[in-house]
């Protein structure tokens, strides 16, 4: 087998194993609950009878291994069971049905932020690396260092205070529904997307700068310079083919960061996404929803890192052209 294919398959396999391990962690963390879930929900005064009925109703009286297999097989098919809240008698709310529209909203927000942030920060990062120690580099460096250190909600509320409350350019709350037209939707996510862009660009630009500086310090870049070939050719032909792996890593890392960042930003802007939903579910201890959200977040995270690794593998000349 070709080494690239072999390495990619190995990496895919490792990704699957990680996902599997994570799903076990997520599932079993619920089993850690002292006194059992029912006791916690129903209170200390609950009779054993009541607890038993409650557990039976939710299927919690079966062995953990059985419940895990059932949960994970259904989850792979997109079925995360029924929400605990709002489940009365025969009316059951499917978790997937609740999540689907919110997942779309979160994806919409994250994608908007990423489309702006990724090219912008790559451009700024590469510029800062090429013009190292210039005033441009220094300013960018101190601005991003400050931005990184700030909590997302601070940046978010400053933007709300200035752009929405004082200048009235945007709504302070980003309420959307399934019927919101596309452009209106875009306008309403502008502030949250801007918030996330600011946070991500700072991180990503710094990492890009570091990666490019590291790359340009390679002896083969000096060699290319001393061969007298043009600056653009040094960058395009000698630096770029070796830059994919570090850049992919930077992008994946920051998109993963973005996925987590949505939680706080959605709450600030009361944006109906999966992050806000998870926070609500945590407060009401709606376990199937919490589990589903955690699994989705973790899977995205793993997938992004997996993609970065695969890009690194398939652009590595030593693997592409084995001895």
């Amino acid at each position: 087998m070709h080494p690239v294919l072999k390495t990619v398959l190995q990496r895919l396999g490792l990704g699957m194993i990680t996902l599997f391990a994570v799903s076990i962690i997520i599932f079993s963390s619920l089993a850690l609950l002292p006194g059992g879930y029912a006791q916690n929900i129903l209170g200390q005064g609950a009779t054993p009878e009541l607890v038993k009925n409650f557990n039976h109703e939710l299927g919690l009286d079966r062995p953990a291994s059985v419940r895990y297999v059932e949960w994970i097989t259904n989850a792979v098919q997109g079925d995360f069971g029924n929400s605990y809240s709002g489940t009365t008698g025969t009316i059951k709310r499917s978790v997937s049905a609740i999540i689907a529209p919110r997942l779309y909203n979160t994806f919409f927000l994250a994608a908007t932020a990423a489309i702006v942030a990724v090219p912008l920060s790559l451009f700024l990062g590469i510029m800062a690396a090429l013009y190292r120690n210039s005033w441009f580099d220094r300013i960018i460096n101190s601005v991003t260092l400050t931005t990184i250190a700030m909590p997302e909600f601070f940046i978010a509320y400053i933007l709300v205070y200035v752009l929405a409350v004082k200048l009235r350019w945007f709504y302070p709350n980003s309420t959307v529904s399934a019927n919101t037209p596309f452009l209106e939707h875009l306008y309403r996510v502008a502030l949250p997307a801007l918030t996330m862009t600011l946070v991500i660009v700072a991180h990503m630009m710094r990492m890009t700068r570091a990666a490019i500086i590291n790359l340009l310090a390679a002896p083969y870049i000096e060699m290319a310079q001393l061969k007298g070939i043009s600056k653009s050719r040094v960058i395009l032909r000698h630096a770029l083919p070796n830059a994919w792996a570090p850049i992919a890593t930077v992008i994946a890392f920051n998109l993963a960061y973005l996925v987590v960042g949505v939680v706080v930003v959605e709450v600030v802007y009361v944006y109906p996404g999966i992050g806000q939903m998870m926070v609500d579910a945590v407060s009401s201890r709606d376990m199937p929803v919490v589990q589903a959200c955690a699994l989705i977040f973790a899977a995205t995270y793993i997938l992004l890192n997996l993609l970065a690794d695969i890009v690194s593998i398939i652009t590595n000349p030593r693997l592409l052209h084995p001895k």
């Binding site: 996902l19 994570v22 987590v260 939680v263 998870m278 955690a294 977040f297 973790a298 995270y301």
Partner: peptide, 8 residues
């Protein structure tokens, strides 16, 4: 554990 974001 590293595959799960801390906040989540």
């Amino acid at each position: 554990f590293l595959a799960i974001p801390v906040l989540i």
